[in-house]
């Protein structure tokens, strides 16, 4: 689980890296409207991370309550 999260986070930032890269192949990403494509991928990953975190939070909460 932890490892998965790590790679997800790494993913986010490699995408940021891609759009920052001024290589010819990425030229299409530099223009303002193509930024949206990057953004969508970023948001999908973010949603995955946040749902993962919320699920973990709930699980731990119930565990803590049971132990108490």
């Amino acid at each position: 689980m932890k490892v998965a999260l790590f790679f997800l986070l790494i993913n986010i930032f490699s995408i940021v890296g891609v759009f920052a890269e001024e290589h010819q192949a990425y030229d299409l990403l530099i223009t303002q409207d193509k930024l949206v494509a990057v953004q969508v991928v970023l948001l999908i990953i973010l949603v995955v991370i946040v749902t993962f975190l919320i699920r973990q939070e709930k699980q731990i909460k119930s565990l803590e309550d049971r132990i108490k």
Binding site: V16, F19, A20, E22, I30, Q32, L35, V36, V38, Q39, L42, L43, L46, V50
Partner: peptide, 26 residues
């Protein structure tokens, strides 16, 4: 705020700087 950063961070008008250009969003 995470969603705000990832949504508005790509929409906000950034200053037009010579070398940085769009990468300033980093």
């Amino acid at each position: 705020l995470l969603f705000y950063t990832c949504i508005y961070g790509f929409i906000v008008k950034v200053p037009d700087l010579p070398i940085l250009e769009q990468s300033i969003r980093n």
